[in-house]
């Protein structure tokens, strides 16, 4: 389940910022990619919400800015 979620997260980030999937890993963070900006961050969060079918609190939107943080959040909810 965790591995499956990781793959989905990487695909969402890759689609949103237009970066190749093999360049994104568990340790990737927004600052690693100049294309992962604040708008990209909100777009990723909206896509993650659709994936988990649950609303992400506004206060978490800018916090979840690494693949690991997103994965941990999904696995907790």
């Amino acid at each position: 389940m965790k591995k499956e979620n990781l793959g989905k997260i990487i695909k969402i980030i890759s689609d949103t910022i237009g970066e190749q999937e093999n360049k994104i890993g568990i340790n990737s963070k927004s600052t690693d990619f100049f294309k992962w900006d604040s708008l990209g961050q909100v777009t990723i969060m909206v896509k993650i919400e659709k994936m988990i079918k649950k609303k992400i609190p506004t206060s978490k939107i800018s916090e979840l800015n690494t693949v690991k943080k997103i994965l941990d959040y999904i696995n907790k909810t």
């Binding site: 689609d15 949103t16 237009g18 604040s38 708008l39 909100v42 777009t43 969060m45 909206v46 896509k47 919400e49 659709k50 506004t58 939107i61 800018s62």
Partner: peptide, 29 residues
Amino acid sequence: LTHFLTTYLYGPLLKSFQNINFFNSMIAT
């Protein structure tokens, strides 16, 4: 203001689209 616009306007607007793709994100912007 930018933070307000992206969080409280852009996000909900983007959610209202059926497909969340680059084109729609630019329309929302």
